[in-house]
Design a protein around this nucleic acid. Structure first.
Lengths: 365, 365
DNA sequence: ACGCAAATTGCAATCGATTGCATCGATTCT
DNA sequence: AGAATCGATGCAATCGATTGCAATTTGCGT
């Protein structure tokens, strides 16, 4: 049924020759072999390679050297099975069936890198898993199967309830996202509400009055950003444009289309808050296509402060989500939850506005 | 020594109570339990869950339903150990000790996404591993330990020899990169030499004559791009600027600095070929800082055609590396190697220039 | 009714390591 | 010298599944 070459994608036949005689049949070396070579029992090899104090330093070093010589590494599946210790963490990136492309978001990319670093540094391995957002239970399966010790989920999307259910089932889970009322799981994220406020305040201070919003309010994070944003505008008696949200995930092309739509509805816009940097960049492209200048005619503010934001032209004003600290916080929280066996409280990271070119009114209109 | 909460990061004590009596001690359910519940032998459960025809459809469905009810999933470590089948692939991203940040490259990010999709689609899991580039053997260990069936390595960097050695040892390995003479391992990548030629031809056709180059020739891929690029310039008797390469990985900040340095050495530059899109974007920023317009004063061409290239302002001319096909090709090649048990020939993907705003001379100087 | 083949299911060995306990020398103490 | 102690190593059970083969049940022909 399944393939089976020399590299043994499968090793289904139990009766394959154990005799390593000819030298052709390259069975993977195992602990017993190394034990024989070293003239000790497998148990000693096991302890030696684990660096146990129980075996004399001399023997230990001899065995370690031998192992290196023969490129021997202990079989992870066996270790895992016997000891029950599992040092791999699942990082789950849900995708929506419609637009598989959600992976294009540079913020997400940065987060994955950050997580990879944080996990590696702590001696954990990272299993990157994409799952259908409709079937989030697949994430639980990772843990039920003993595949990973815990799960970090990036983006809560519209799955608050499913996530709650998972947390209640007792699955070690940490989510990148925003805090919601009645939430049983642990989130790490920026203060989206504050972020939205900061943007509105800034744009108002710059003298902008006809401000548009770009983003999908169906997503809790975006909704929070919008809420803070709208609050401040309302307090200052500035109207929100009707067509204030053009449902668009974090896709560049969709962003362009949405921006054009927004312009059609509100031709005399003088500012736009895009709920993600990618969206903001796409919006700037659309604005330029429509003959408008940024920031002279229309100010643009993004969210995330991805690596490129500072290098985009014009340099992008944006709300900074500290990606490195975010990754670290996710990992540390999860590991501590694993240790303590209980859900920890959610974390809000420092959130601040980074003002750059794209939103400055030269002459402070 | 190691932590051990209810979630069992560790389960070291062999004598933990097996009795699930009180309901408090939540041992992970296992096949035997499910078998008891279903009133059959574990072997039947195993076959049922694997969908084997050997068990009657009725029993099979009953067991599957039961498993779903109790959130039971077969333990992966045990399966893996017993059957010898391993469906996880290691994706290795080396980092140079100096600049851990190599992960900032958007092309790399896109590739990871593409690989995640390609692997998931084929029913494989993806272990994302960052390793110290000085110690590439850690990648072999993944396979030696039976941790992954094979390895996809992104970026050959300066490690041609180590990679050759790994291939000779018989490790299932595919590398994203460029073909080098005397290569024993398999690479997938764009035709870097051709790419460089295309860029040079294009810039010459646009009437540019004082052309700079940005990139680290120490990397084989970049070296190839440069070689093709330089060949064409030489053929057309156009000089290469002295300070033609400013050693910089794919880092934005370094790119800015390098661009400034290049300008200092060659103030009357009228075009730049940057060996990566991130670099190109950073270069554009630097050019603007120096008061030059792109493309009017200086044309800029990148390499990769990352998602954002089309949305950058000015829209970036670049050499397209088909990222989706690249990911697919890497995965399919590796899987076929696993099946056939031999190293397959390297692959060069279609490579073409995508001309956009950043390199067009309006009046064709 | 009886025997035989086919369809199901169960038994028990096995994958490759880990670990509690027993063992065995060597050393120290009385 | 003999007993007690201690350090180093070996023995054998075990982790949770898979699978070849044996055992059982079912169905069918005659």
């Amino acid at each position: 049924m399944h393939p089976s070459g020399p590299w043994g994608l499968s090793v289904s036949d139990t009766k394959r020759p154990k005799t390593d005689g000819a030298g052709t049949s390259r069975r993977r070396m195992q602990m017993a072999d190394l034990a024989k070579l070293a003239g000790v029992a497998p148990s000693t090899v096991s302890r030696a390679l684990a660096g146990s104090e129980l075996v004399s330093q001399q023997t230990r070093e001899r065995i370690q050297t031998l192992a290196r010589q023969f490129n021997y590494t202990v079989n992870r599946a066996a270790t895992n099975l016997r000891s029950g210790i599992n040092r791999t963490i699942g990082v789950v990136v849900p995708y929506e069936r419609a637009s598989r492309q959600s992976f294009a978001d540079p913020f997400l990319h940065g987060m994955i890198g950050s997580l990879a670093d944080a996990l590696t540094q702590r001696g954990y391995e990272m299993l990157l898993v994409r799952i259908d957002a409709e079937n989030l239970d697949a994430a639980s399966a990772l843990i039920d199967a003993g595949r990973t010790a815990g799960v970090i989920l990036i983006g809560q999307w519209r799955h608050h309830d499913q996530l709650n259910a998972m947390a209640v089932r007792g699955l070690p889970l940490v989510v990148w996202g925003t805090q919601l009322p009645g939430q049983r799981y642990c989130t790490v994220g920026s203060d989206n509400h504050l972020g939205g406020q900061l943007v509105a305040q800034h744009l108002l201070a710059e003298g902008r009055r006809r401000i548009g919003f770009l983003g999908d309010i169906g997503l809790p994070e975006v909704a929070e950003r919008y809420r803070g944003f709208a609050e401040v505008l309302k307090t200052n008696k500035v109207a929100l444009p009707d067509r204030r949200h053009a449902s668009a995930p974090f896709l560049a092309d969709a962003g362009r289309v949405a921006m054009h739509a927004l312009l059609e509805a509100e031709p005399d816009l003088d500012a736009v808050f895009a709920s993600g940097d990618l969206l903001a960049m796409a919006a700037i492209g659309a604005l330029r296509e429509s003959g408008r200048r940024v920031p002279e005619d229309v100010a643009v503010v993004g969210y995330d402060d991805v690596e490129l934001a500072a290098h985009f032209s014009p340099h992008l004003t944006t709300v900074r989500q500290p990606i490195h600290e975010g990754g670290t916080a996710l990992v540390e929280t999860l590991l501590e939850m694993l240790e303590r066996g209980e859900v920890l409280p959610s974390i809000q990271l420092e959130t601040r506005l980074v003002v750059r070119e794209s939103s400055r009114s030269g002459e402070r209109a």
